[in-house]
């Protein structure tokens, strides 16, 4: 039987899944790896592992493999954590896998970006089950209905791996993949303090998220989890402001689903202007504070 198991790492993860399930045209259940209730997205069953925190990926893969029996598709929102665990799951199940699906042409044909987002490949998949990760920005987002309490399965979470330490630098700002407004900075931000003051300050003023280019992350100006692009976070906010971002192929691959892209750069020939809806050739240190004041109002 054709049926999708949406593996949600947390309840917000489930939100992105409704449109994907619709595109596949399959009935679906949700498995919450953490959390006890899912947003109402039309799932037939909502299940929960009973875990209070995510175990290492070997435990996730084993637990989900134990439930895989009744499903033709197992899928999660694309993220580092889902690629880590679901590819291992595919190994356990000897299942073919498709990463970073951006469109579904029925239940066994998918589109995905390749070569750092510079090309789109359509793949046909032979197999049952099929394991997938998908980018929610490619699919519709129906408004969720009332929350649905999950059936707790009390799954084991035993891992061969010991987690020694975790450092999360998230802070109070919204997550990049969820934010409505993103302000993003490149190497012209000079150093970590300047980045935090100018880009972080802007993000806080407008209630948005801060992002960075790979170049900024590589030169230590911004922490790695802020990296936006094909090898970082794929974002789709209502407003993306790129300040001092030249616009490498791999960065643009990560932002092209944004509703409005604004570019501010001193170099009038920067490639970012080729895809920005609105471009301002200006010094970001002068333009950003002014824009921040006006957007704040």
């Amino acid at each position: 039987m054709s049926r999708l198991l949406l593996v949600a790492f947390d309840p917000t993860d489930a939100l992105g899944g409704a449109g994907f399930a619709g595109a596949l045209g399959l009935p679906f259940d949700v498995l919450l790896l953490t959390g006890q209730a899912a947003p109402g997205i039309g799932a037939e069953k909502v299940l929960a592992t009973g875990w209070t925190e995510l175990p290492p990926s070997d435990a996730i893969a084993s637990a989900v493999a134990g439930l895989a029996g009744g499903y033709s598709h197992l899928a999660s929102v694309s993220a580092m954590r889902s690629k880590d665990a679901l590819a291992r799951l595919a190994g356990h199940l000897d299942a073919p896998m498709v990463t970073d699906v951006i469109a579904a042409e029925g239940p066994s044909q998918f589109k995905r970006p390749i070569v750092a987002g510079s090309l789109i490949e359509t793949v046909a998949v032979d197999g049952n089950p099929i394991v997938l990760t998908f980018r929610p920005s490619g699919f519709s987002k129906p408004a969720p209905g009332a929350e649905v309490a999950a059936d707790n399965l009390n799954l084991p979470g035993t891992s061969a791996v010991t987690r020694v330490s975790v450092s999360s630098r998230g802070g109070a700002r919204p997550d990049l993949t969820q934010a409505k407004v993103i302000i993003s900075g490149g190497r012209p931000l000079k150093d970590a303090d300047t980045f935090e003051r100018v880009i972080g300050g802007f993000a806080d003023a407008v209630g948005g998220a801060a992002g960075a280019t790979r170049a900024a992350v590589d030169s230590g100006i911004a922490p790695n989890e802020l990296q936006v692009g094909q090898t970082g976070k794929i974002v789709a906010p209502d407003l993306y402001i790129a300040a001092g971002v030249s616009g490498s192929t791999q960065h643009m691959a990560g932002i092209k689903d944004s509703k409005i892209i604004v570019a501010i750069n001193t170099d009038p020939d920067a490639p970012i202007f080729e895809i920005a809806d609105l471009g301002l050739v200006a010094d970001l240190y002068q333009a950003l504070p002014e824009l921040q004041e006006k957007l704040k109002k």
């Binding site: 073919p96 896998m97 987002g117 032979d126 202007f273 920005a276 609105l278 006006k294």
Partner: peptide, 25 residues
């Protein structure tokens, strides 16, 4: 079992317009 059917370019996002000032922006 994952077979390539087609490879195509990414649909281009059209360039927008340049503005001269923050106010115009």
């Amino acid at each position: 079992r994952v077979r390539s059917v087609k490879v195509e370019s990414v649909p281009a996002r059209a360039a927008g317009k340049k503005v001269a000032s923050v106010e115009e922006l």
